[in-house]
Nucleic acid binder design. Structure first.
Lengths: 237, 237
DNA sequence: ACGCTTATGCTACTTAAGTAGTATTAAACT
DNA sequence: AGTTTAATACTACTTAAGTAGCATAAGCGT
């Protein structure tokens, strides 16, 4: 919270949506609203009140945003958030309660600010509302493609796309989702553990991936890519 | 486009998100960017270029926003837009191309403006960026609940919810979707014509609805409500 | 080292949803 | 009026996904 910390955070958040195009003066007045918090792995935010009254920027670690069905048996992960992501954008945008849960997949560092303070700052600096728009647009597009993927595409293809989407270009291996259980992978594509496992076995057998406890590794990227092409062709016969 | 028209449009658009909290001066300068267009029923906007360069506010009539799968066989309707709705919000927010189609379900009147002019106006009046946020938030919430509905809920329940959501409190009958074909209803919940028909037959047989060509009518609302309760309980056994 | 918890792998089974095809009917269009 | 088009109703079939259950293995905490 001290001056040095604020400047440091500014540096860390160079690609956070809220801080684009801010001169140092505005950045400083904005960051003064925030304080740093550290949450241990597996921390859950299930109290939606907290989301209405606080706003968070992730400095490090992964946070999944998810929903649970009426009887608490099924889950679906809506977003896997990480550095420079913010939440809860829904509440910031319209001020309403948002029936959604958050869980830390790692130890997570965030900047936290009272929602009202942030709103006040934005009202005082209305030109920075603009910063939120591209980020909101990106999230809308992600939700939109989630809808069309679920309605058009089978689980095997959705799983393939999930894997390929999370391959790091340099390392040619998985990132972000490399250490998730099959259950968590299933929730990311709106399916169940057993079904995802079934398809992972298939990929394992053709030598494209290696599966160990809480770990999926890419063995042969080209097989996965070819497989995706084939599956998308098959659907159009 | 003449002065009288502009004022009239202001009146018509009293609940359009873009015009909230605008004084008459700002409203007039904003509306000057727009001109009125009338599109015949079944007009399609399949050229995504147009969406990047123009922005529309619906004055009357219904417009569905939908996506088509890779081989053009399946469809899913993402939004059913009507008076005071705007499009394409995605493009306005982030300026990117949006792979989505629009089709007029009625004769549709819109106000149209060049996207760049609108962006220019918003940059000149940054405090009105704020007006977009609650609307964007609402659309995000709709997409979010679309995702969770599709992953958690069976077609029969989704269809029930679709019907109940579109019952007018006063008339106690359907609006917005009352004159859609089973195919269109199916696309609204991410399913197919044959399956929706199957469930509608079920509802018909218990006396809750009446089905004729391009028309679904509510016969007994209480049956539908009870049915929804039962189905949601069953899932939690 | 031990037991507890959680993840994985796999078999067998169930089911809702999708698919194909076709007859019938209603509306729209010369 | 007659032709064409599109919507509805219904039967039979296929299939992917979900479900249940269990054995094995990995990792964690004490």
């Amino acid at each position: 919270m001290e001056g040095a910390g604020i400047l440091q955070n500014r540096y860390h958040l160079n690609s956070c949506v809220l801080l684009n195009y801010l001169d140092d003066k505005d950045a400083q007045s904005l960051l003064k609203l925030f304080h740093e918090e550290v949450w241990t792995k597996n921390t859950c935010i299930i109290n939606s009140e907290k989301l209405v009254y606080h706003f968070f920027i992730i400095l490090s670690g992964r946070v999944k945003m998810y929903q649970v069905d009426n009887n608490g048996e099924k889950e679906v992960t809506l977003f896997l958030l990480s550095r420079n992501d913010v939440f809860d954008l829904f509440c910031l945008l319209d001020g309403c309660k948002h029936d959604v849960y958050y869980e830390c997949l790692d130890e997570v560092k965030v900047l936290a600010a009272p929602m009202e303070d942030l709103r006040g700052w934005l009202n005082a600096h209305p030109q920075h509302y603009k910063n939120l728009l591209p980020y909101a647009g990106r999230q809308m597009r992600m939700l939109e493609s989630y809808v069309s993927d679920i309605t058009f595409t089978d689980i095997s293809t959705r799983l393939l796309k999930l894997l390929l989407k999370n391959v790091n270009d340099k390392s040619r291996n998985l990132e972000m989702i490399h250490d998730l259980s099959h259950k968590e992978l299933a929730y990311l594509i709106g399916s169940t553990r057993a079904v995802v496992n079934r398809h992972l076995q298939k990929f394992k057998k053709n030598g494209s991936i290696k599966v160990t406890r809480n770990k999926v590794e890419i063995k042969d990227l080209s097989i996965l890519i070819k497989l995706l092409e084939i599956q998308q062709q098959q659907r159009s016969i």
